[in-house]
């Protein structure tokens, strides 16, 4: 599936929920399914410091596609990372570079991408794209 198709699938899933509680409960559950980063990669180099919750991201190439694993010490942050990784992992670097994150707004989680940086998510998206750019350079 393309990134856009996956994003639409996520939007469909979230449209089933009537209120914030159901949305957040689903997100918390998704957080528990996050493809966890190998402990060996949970290093200071891979840490993205938000003001409050920490995020670790690791990337590697598999058949011209970028695979991401990640973790966070906060469960809601983990839920959003799970959603982002579902959209961006196992994709060609070029597609990751070009993808946008408007779907986060559409599923009612816009406040998590605000520039208060409390959760490090804005930096995390930048980091995913940086990895994609680096791998794209290798492919060229």
């Amino acid at each position: 599936m393309t990134i856009e198709e996956i994003q639409n699938e996520i939007i469909d899933e979230f449209s089933m929920f009537d209120d914030w509680e159901e949305r957040y409960q689903y997100m918390i559950d998704l957080g528990k399914t996050l493809p966890l980063i190998d402990e060996a990669h949970k290093t200071d180099d891979n840490i993205i410091k938000g003001c409050q919750s920490k995020v670790w991201v690791h990337a590697h190439m598999n058949d011209d596609k970028v695979e991401f694993t990640a973790d966070s010490d906060a469960i809601i942050t983990k839920g959003i990372i799970a959603i982002l990784i579902r959209a961006f992992s196992n994709q060609h670097p070029k597609d990751i570079i070009e993808a946008n994150t408007d779907f986060i707004d559409k599923i009612g989680l816009k406040e998590h991408l605000s520039p208060t940086r409390a959760n490090g998510l804005v930096s995390m998206i930048k980091q995913l794209k940086m990895y994609a750019i680096a791998y794209q350079t290798q492919l060229n």
């Binding site: 509680e21 957040y24 409050q52 919750s53 906060a74 809601i76 942050t77």
Partner: peptide, 13 residues
Amino acid sequence: NIHPYDIGTILDK
């Protein structure tokens, strides 16, 4: 062991 950020986020809702 709940992260303070998580509690604050839910309370804000």
